[in-house]
Each structure stands twice: as structure tokens, then as C-alpha cells.
Amino acid sequence: MSRDLRAITFSKTAAEQILRNETDTRTLLSEYPEYKEEVLLEINALSSQKRANLIHNLLASYTSSAKIAKSKIFKSGFNQTTINAFLPNIIKARFAIYLIEQLQLAVSAESASGPVRFNLWDGYILQKLLFKEKLVRKPVSLPLFRVCWKLIIRPKVLMPLVNKQGIYCFYSRTLIKRLSALIGDKACLEIGAGDGTLTRFLNDNGTACQATDDYSWAHYITYPEFVEKADAKAALSKYAPKVVLCSWPVPGNPYEKHVFNTESVELYIVIGTRDPAITGDFDAYNKAKHFSMELNEELSRLLVPPSEDNAVYLFTRKRDSTHSR
């Protein structure tokens, strides 16, 4: 028999760990299965309405609820009544994001027909082409990729499979060289760095960059030691970078806005997609009045696999702008 949701009491320690993303989603799922069932019922009820942009609206709703809950708990000084009342909204938001991700992966990989995996031919070619070893990515040779990609029997299987490991794109050698040229010798910071692949490639190419991440995706990603644990706001304050990078930022995220509010930043480079429901805080992009926004088509074509949705955005601080907090 499931517990009465109203009767669940959370310790202050448990609340702090959840708020700091120190408790991964799978652990939360096992400890609070009742909330998973509640989220599934809510998603099912909203899905039956067949509204446009359903996934985007669902994520926005849960994310908004979680932000309000987090603010209430902090302002209360971790008052027990407030924790019990609002922490479930944060847990449910974590569940919703996780479950929706799993649903999207299942649909895109057509997993309903059985486990999806590479055949030996595709697996061998892609391993040699994209990875240094196992799932450790390497800069991709564009000429070689263009030849080998034509030989892949099931190209649509690649991204749904690697998405499960927090991999959303591959970087060509040419892209890394172009990014290095843009950055030059300026102080560079990557936020939301994940496994740090982009920073690693830049450093190997002679461009100094510091990788940071808040480790909130530990259920997908194994974070290497060189990726410093820090949220975007703290990292920007600590390093005062002139150039900031972010690859595949979460849609409607709460952290990109801090880039535009950091006085030291002269250039912000975003690697993602053209779809606001998949990557990026486009609300923050549109409000960044001190920066000019450019969708660089040339750089976008240097991401692999090729897709019309691939996008590299360059946000350049306007010379005559004066930053105000």
C-alpha cells in the first residue's frame, strides 16, 4: 500500500541534498515512488488533451513549480512545514524531466519494437569514426565522416542511443579550430559542460578553457575531475570570463541569463538547435539587449551528424553598450 502523500515528512538534510542535486533521480524514484505515479497520472491527463507543444508546456509547468518551491524553502530558512509542503514539487519536476526524456528516447529509437542497438557493421564504423575509446568522443574528421556516414545502415539509431549517455552532438575538428580562433587568448569558461568533451578538445587544440557544471545530470553523465562542480552563476562570478561556451543548454533553463548579466563577457557561444523546445533559453536570448545575436550557418554545418536543426549562436557584446545590473 502506498503512503499518504500528505503524511510524508522530509528531513532538513534530505531537503538540502535534493536542492543541491546531490541525490540523483533514480534514487529519488526508488525512495518516493508515489510521486512518480502522481507525475505519470498528470502527464497522462494532460496528454489526453492533445494540446500543441505538449512536451514544452509540461516541462515549463514543472520547472516553474520547482523554482517557486525552491524559493519558498530557502526564504523560510528550511522551515519543516514549508519543506513538507513544497519539496514534493521539486521532486516531481525532477521526475517529470527524467520521464519525458525517457519517453522521447524511446519514441525516437523506436524501442517499442525491441531493444535498439547497432549492428556489427554500423557499430564498428561509428566507434572508429566518433570515439577514442568506448564512449569517449574524439574530434571528427569531416571528410572521413562524409564518406563513412553514407555507409551506415541505420543512421537514425545513433543519436537516440548516445543521448542516454548525455551525448547530444559530435564536434568536427574544423569546428574546434574555428572556435579556437574565435576565442584566441581570452579567458574562456564553459558552463553546463557535462563530461567536458568540448573543453577537452579546445585545451588539446591549445585554447585554454575551464569546464564547469552543477552535476545535476549525474544520472546520465560521469563527470571527470577537470569539470569543476559549480553552477553557472557561481562559475561566472569566480572566473569573470571574456568568452563563455555552452553546448546543448537545457530548454528554458534558469542559468543562461546570468551570462548576459556578467560584465566581463564579450562573446557567448551556444551550440544547440534552432528549436526552443529542445535547447536554449530563447527568452533570455531575446532580452539580451547589450548583445547582438547571430545564427552562424557556417559553424552550424560543422556539427555532426548533419541536421537542418543544428545551430551555433554567437552573442557579441555591443561596443556602445553599458552594462547595468
Rank of each mutant, 00 (worst) to 15 (best):
I83W: 05
V157N: 07
E298H: 02
D231M: 10
R3L: 12
H290E: 02
K177N: 05
A187K: 08
L40Y: 14
A240F: 11
A96R: 07
L103E: 13
H219T: 01
A60D: 10
L179E: 07
L299P: 01
Y239V: 15
L198E: 04
K164I: 02
K257M: 08
E16H: 12
A208H: 03
K233D: 04
F78D: 00
R178W: 11
C246M: 06
E38R: 11
I278V: 01
F74H: 04
V162Y: 00
T81K: 01
L120T: 01
T222K: 04
G123Q: 05
I43G: 00
G206T: 10
Y255H: 08
S141G: 00
A218K: 11
W217D: 02
S48E: 14
T207E: 02
K132A: 15
L19Y: 05
E190A: 04
L40Q: 01
F170E: 05
A187N: 03
A234I: 11
P33D: 12
Y171P: 03
L302W: 02
S108D: 09
L302T: 04
P254D: 15
L59R: 11
A235Y: 14
F201V: 14
I43D: 01
L202N: 00
A288I: 02
H290D: 15
I269G: 11
Y171V: 01
I152K: 09
V227D: 09
T197H: 00
K72H: 03
G280T: 00
Y124N: 10
N261E: 12
A181R: 05
Y168F: 03
Y239C: 09
N21W: 13
F291W: 10
E22Q: 14
T322C: 03
A277T: 10
L142K: 00
R317F: 14
P115N: 08
S30E: 01
G272L: 03
S61L: 15
K138R: 15
T27A: 03
E31H: 15
L302I: 13
P139N: 12
T222A: 10
F260L: 09
Y62M: 09
S264E: 09
E225I: 11
